[in-house]
Design a protein around this nucleic acid. Sequence first.
DNA 1: ATAGAAAATTGATCTATGTCACGTAAAACC
DNA 2: GGTTTTACGTGACATAGATCAATTTTCTAT
Lengths: 243, 243
Amino acid sequence: MGIEGKPITVTKCGTCGGGKDDSSLCGLARSGLESDRLQRTHRSYDIGQNIYLEGDNCEGVYCLKAGLIAIRKTDVNGNSAVVRLVQPGEAFGHRSFLANERHAGTAEVLVKSKLCFIPRASLEHLLSQSPDVAIRFTRRVARDLREIEELYLLTTTQPVRKRLAHLLLSLKTRYSSNESEDDEVVIELPLSRQELAAAIGTRPETIARTIKKLEEDQLAFFKGRQVTIPSLDLLQEDFEAEA
Amino acid sequence: MGIEGKPITVTKCGTCGGGKDDSSLCGLARSGLESDRLQRTHRSYDIGQNIYLEGDNCEGVYCLKAGLIAIRKTDVNGNSAVVRLVQPGEAFGHRSFLANERHAGTAEVLVKSKLCFIPRASLEHLLSQSPDVAIRFTRRVARDLREIEELYLLTTTQPVRKRLAHLLLSLKTRYSSNESEDDEVVIELPLSRQELAAAIGTRPETIARTIKKLEEDQLAFFKGRQVTIPSLDLLQEDFEAEA
DNA sequence: ATAGAAAATTGATCTATGTCACGTAAAACC
DNA sequence: GGTTTTACGTGACATAGATCAATTTTCTAT
């Protein structure tokens, strides 16, 4: 499955980059006074490492600074599904922390990542002190819940083509480079074809074929990990199309 | 879709039946002193009514006393999926309340139901007063999140037959009547075939055929809504079987 | 640079499930 | 109680996607 990850650098976290919205752990925890008391360590992980495994005790909560993480769930027969992609600025591991349960999925590093880690004791302390931070955490999970309900609906009702289009559109924001005068966009995919397949609940072969169809329809062109989308509008339109 | 539901009886809630675990709202809110301050009203709803609709403002949180509720999400094209079945003792509507969002799904009454309702202001007050109740609510959503992740995995990786077996096994606890000396069980299904189909993300025709296969394999026998399972172990085994 | 391993693509099937159509049974309604 | 819906079952068929096997391409590591 992969190698158990280990921290490469351990330094004190000065200011955490991200915005102040509740997707970011730092946004969640930021609250003037408290943020000093919070123990935080920065860590780096390489591709293929696992930050934690399904079934592990939850030692704390993570916030992704850079890179890309997949949360994957596996059943007894070895079937698995990527339940969530964690993009920079987002927290992960907080579900288990809040539920007071073991981790329900494995956190896999898809792209060399930097993250900060807050040990559970420290965060527990913070939450007990500042109710408003606790409320923000609660909101975070409640929104996570809505998001996966949406993913569930998408996956059970839409064909692979639409799900792939949807994924591309969701990666666009963070991974698109040059957006020229028309709405052409070039995305540098942070995922392999295998990971693409896992992320939308299908097989690599099907991804290859679906890519070919998208190219035939001039909606997107794939060269390795570089995806050129001639018109975001057209792709969006295709995604939204009836039936 | 159905008729907007309206309360039939409105009385003060004395003691709420359920256990004290966190699945029950009353379990969640129960905390000696506070439970008196809590405004609660009992209501009854008939089959086909909707307790709230997707997009409605969240006016409060519900706890199901008796009956069965389905939470259904619908997309712009009218595709829908039942995201959760709410069984007696469980809370619903709390996600929207905690996220401070509009309802993300419609609550449909599948079986004549009794429930109690706590208006949001009253619950907000309670939560601000007693942090431990707030923590229990947070745990509740965090667990809901794990549960739907599990459903997502099940649905994306397992065929209809297994998903149906799984649903039967999960209904067993509450709806089985006589369990004889061997482990034969008779379940009185609280769902129609259509609802069965929606609950596991398939079509009524497929349900009919899957039922026939289960009967051929002597795993379960369906007469209307009455399901006879000769051996729970065999059904469980079939559900867990490789590939 | 070269060899070996892993990933991606492609073609050829196979199959589960969706769709459509029709008949029957059950339930709702007057 | 009879009529009109609505649900259910079943057959025939269509198809998206899985699976299997064979190449080819791309990475990795020496």
